[in-house]
Each structure stands twice: as structure tokens, then as C-alpha cells.
């Protein structure tokens, strides 16, 4: 399918040093798809303490992408904000149902697949986003700065969050649709959160996002972009601050 949206997506996901030390597989996943005039991007972080969370995160990213794609294709006309919100809600519900089905089939507890979800759908006029759990989404604004798009869900403690498998997932889901076509969108798992969001103000670190997107402007080869992103996420600059899996997904309108 021709990319009519003008949106390009790139992602990198690397295992955290804690996982590597213990021989545990990476539990973060990222998936993106540009389909005609819309683009879908998903990031999921499997809970470190849940034994099937890597599979859970795979189901979440693939199912959310498929569900959102089909629902977008089903729309007869350009979606309104209400249409897009419905696409997001239904897609996330679809993910939850798939995980429940998987749990029934395998006899494994639903919680063993615990993972978070960040889903973004962009059209030529709208940006829709939904979030269950931690991690974050940052967009560029018209003033040359960056804003957080959704809010991570947190309990009192830093490792406490809502998962798509949690009982209270739907009450805690953050859904937002904005009439905007931000040039840049970044989505990241909580492994990167402390490095790119300022703790006290909860604002994006301008320097990080500005540098990354300025660099991305000059790139054209997707393979090279993703290799360089992986290199960044594996660099001591990042790993000295985070021992968790790290995923970064970027989109740019060219």
C-alpha cells in the first residue's frame, strides 16, 4: 500500500541489563503500520514479574494493530474525533478479549500475561492515543517544543501501575483525540521514562527529543535509523540510568 499519510515510523526495543544478567528475555514489544492515509503505532511493556508477559506484550501489539487497522478501514469516510475515539476504545477492548481468550485456552492466569499498552492512530487531521499503564507519549507542538500527550498511571510506588490484564484497566485507560498533525511523535516504555521526562514537572526533556528528531530529519534509511536507535538504547549513557527493557518508537511527518 502506498504511504499517502506522509508518516514514517521507526522503533527499537532492547533488553534491559537486569534481564540480560538473569537470562530473562526482553518483555517490551513495539509494532507499527502505515496503511494508506493513516498510521498506527503500539508499544507494550510486559510486567517483569509476570511469567508470560513477553507473550502478553506480543499479543497486545499485534492485536491492537490489527484491530485498529480493520476498524479504520471499515470507516466509510474520514474519521471524526468521535469515530477515532471509538476505534481506540474498541481496539483496546479487543486486546483485552484476546488476552482473556489466551488465558482460557492455556489455563494460565490472566495476570501472568500482564503488560501495558500505548496505542496511537494518526490520520491527516487527527491524532488519537490510548494508554493503559506506564510509559509515555510525547508530541511536538507548534511553538517548537514538546508536550506529553497522555498520562502514565501510577500507584504510590514507582513499580506499580495498571496493566491491560488488571481488573480496573478500563477505568484507568487514558484516551485522547486531538485535532492536530504533530510533526513528531515519540512513544516509550517506562524503562526510558526517567531519562526523558523530568520527575518534578512531568514535562518532556526538550534536549533529548529535539536532538533525536533533528537527527531523524536527516535520515532516510529505516534499517540504519533502527540500528542507530538500538545503539542509543544500549549505550552506557542510557543503561547507567535504567536496567529495564527499553523501547522507543518515533514517527515523523515528512
Amino acid at each position: 500500500m502506498v504511504n499517502r499519510s506522509g508518516i514514517w515510523a521507526y522503533s527499537a526495543s532492547v533488553a534491559g541489563s537486569r534481564h540480560l544478567r538473569r537470562g530473562v528475555e526482553r518483555q517490551d514489544r513495539a509494532f507499527h503500520r502505515v496503511e494508506g492515509d493513516f498510521a498506527i503505532a503500539v508499544v507494550s511493556d510486559g510486567a517483569g514479574s509476570a511469567r508470560n508477559s513477553a507473550l502478553g506484550a506480543t499479543v497486545t501489539t499485534t492485536r491492537a494493530t490489527a484491530a485498529a487497522t480493520w476498524r479504520m478501514l471499515d470507516l466509510a469516510k474520514s474519521p471524526t474525533a468521535a469515530d477515532l475515539e471509538e476505534v481506540l476504545r474498541a481496539s483496546v477492548s479487543g486486546v483485552r478479549q484476546s488476552l482473556e481468550e489466551l488465558s482460557r485456552q492455556t489455563g494460565e492466569p490472566l495476570q501472568s500475561y500482564a503488560n501495558t499498552l500505548l496505542l496511537a492512530v494518526q490520520t491527516d487531521t487527527l491524532l488519537g492515543a490510548s494508554q493503559v499503564g506506564d510509559g509515555g507519549m510525547v508530541i511536538s507542538n507548534d511553538q517548537g517544543g514538546f508536550d506529553c500527550l497522555t498520562s502514565p498511571q501510577r500507584g504510590e510506588y514507582a513499580n506499580q501501575t495498571t496493566f491491560i490484564t488488571s481488573r480496573e484497566w478500563s477505568e484507568n485507560m487514558d484516551v485522547k483525540v486531538v485535532e492536530a498533525q504533530p510533526k513528531y511523535l515519540a512513544m516509550f516504555s517506562d524503562g526510558l521514562e526517567n531519562l526523558v521526562i523530568e520527575g518534578a514537572t512531568q514535562q518532556p526533556f526538550f534536549g533529548f527529543f529535539n536532538n533525536v528528531f533533528q537527527w531523524l530529519e536527516g535520515q532516510s534509511d529505516p534499517g540504519r535509523v533502527e540500528a542507530e536507535l538500538s545503539g542509543l538504547l544500549r549505550s552506557p549513557r542510557v543503561t547507567s540510568k535504567s536496567d529495564d527493557d527499553i523501547t522507543l518508537l518515533l514517527t515523523i511527518r515528512r
Binding site: 537486569r18 510486567a47 514479574s49 495476570q111 500482564a114 513499580n159 496493566f163 517506562d190 529495564d244
Partner: peptide, 14 residues
């Protein structure tokens, strides 16, 4: 203490 930061799907301390 080194593994305390992993996300918990329940309130249990594993």
C-alpha cells in the same frame, strides 16, 4: 533490592 524495580501485576512482593 536489585530486582525490586520490576513492575508488579499484583501487590504481592515476589
Amino acid at each position: 533490592m536489585s530486582s525490586v524495580s520490576q513492575s508488579q501485576p499484583t501487590d504481592a512482593v515476589s
